[in-house]
Amino acid sequence: MRPLYVSRTACITRQSVSVNGKELPVSSGDGRFLAAVYRTLGIDYPKFFKMDNLSKLGFLASELLLREDRPRFVPREDCAVICFNRSASLDADTLYQATIGPGEDYFPSPSLFVYTLPNIVTAEIAIRNKLYGETSFYICEAFSAHQLFTTVSHAFADSSIRSALAGWTEYGNEVCEAFLMQIETFPPPETALPFSVEFLTRIKNKL
């Protein structure tokens, strides 16, 4: 197994938004927290507003990680996107279900329906950043640093994968939390840390 390093991290909760441990001030006057983060980051991607909350959350975490890359949006086939959570797409599922009323009030929303799968978040990140490596999404009973570590490590068993955006993206049941890491194989800069179960436990506990 090749040694893996975490070169960057992004964390989002309703209380705090940070990149590599450095907090970013976000003001959410109207209560639309994810939209406030979007505006704070100065992103111009109208499709964001069509996404469900889980995709918005993962998308913003990926923007926090990658927004200063120059050049950006260079197609890559060696970068995977791997996310995990507990509630799958329950938030979007619930909103979709609410559009299906009884009797004549039966108007299922196509735009909500397309987000009733949690792996759409990995697709949104991959599409935005032209990442053509593996994308996968895992639903767990609870956060497990060991499971996350093992699954992400296995993705690197494919020798064509040299990098991954991976992490925990949970939206639902009043929880809004995400951490996303850029994990790489090449010798890291001084700030990079070994990718490990301990690292994952630490970062999740900080959310």
Partner: peptide, 8 residues
């Protein structure tokens, strides 16, 4: 998808 939403 927007087109479908307009039909609804």
């Amino acid at each position: 998808i927007d087109a479908l939403e307009l039909i609804v």
